[in-house]
């Protein structure tokens, strides 16, 4: 690739090696959402996991009684911004799947407000994903997916479903809402899997 944009020098050429290709580090926190921000009260909030063998549901209080992890990670949005070294608290998907059996290889995450996104199950397990409810020591704001969102930091951040309400396992990798609207079925930022 030898294209050069005439006259462009850019701001900082010391690219942080933690930045995937095509990403720019930001200090603020842009928002990618398809519609209005749903407001969900923790009194009404529920989270469930549904497999071919049945469903498990947690209320907010039950959820808070689970083992909570501190997570420090970089996040990468498909709209070309990244935040490095963010800190979160949440419950790992490993913890939630303890005692749950499924033969399905894929998961659809469902959100309050109706959005969905698909992720392979083995990319949610083994310390790769959490249901997070705290960011930088504060309750997660609704604008950023609170009261709780999925975080799958190794994939573009639209996979980290905001306002998450449940995970439903499925035998095939069916596309979710974002994937049907033009985003990549998998979404690895290091491979720039942004769009179909």
């Amino acid at each position: 690739m030898s294209f050069i944009t005439r006259g462009f020098s850019g701001r900082s050429h010391d690219r942080d090696p933690r930045l995937p290709p095509g990403q720019t580090e930001v200090s603020d926190w842009p928002v990618l959402s398809a519609g209005p921000t749903p407001r969900v009260d923790t009194e009404e909030w529920e989270f469930s996991i549904r497999t071919e063998n049945g469903a498990h549901t947690w209320t907010w209080d039950q959820f808070m009684a689970l083992k909570i992890d501190d997570v420090s990670t970089d996040i990468h949005c498909v709209t070309h911004w990244s935040k490095l070294g963010t800190s979160w608290r949440g419950v790992s998907i490993d913890t939630l799947f303890e005692g749950i059996e499924t033969s399905h290889d894929f998961v659809m995450a469902h959100s309050y407000g109706g959005y969905t996104t698909n992720v392979p199950l083995d990319e949610l397990l083994n310390g790769q994903a959490w249901i997070a409810f705290e960011f930088d020591g504060e309750p997660l704001e609704a604008e950023h997916g609170g009261p709780a969102r999925l975080i799958v930091p190794h994939l573009y951040f639209w996979k980290s479903a905001k306002w998450v309400r449940g995970l439903v396992t499925m035998p095939n990798d069916d596309p979710g809402f974002w994937e049907q609207s033009g985003y990549h079925i998998h979404g690895d930022p290091w491979k720039e899997e942004r769009y179909w």
Partner: peptide
Amino acid sequence: LDIRLTAPDGYTATRS
């Protein structure tokens, strides 16, 4: 669309 600017040293910046 996305626009990608490339500096002579290969540095790029992309925006929508």
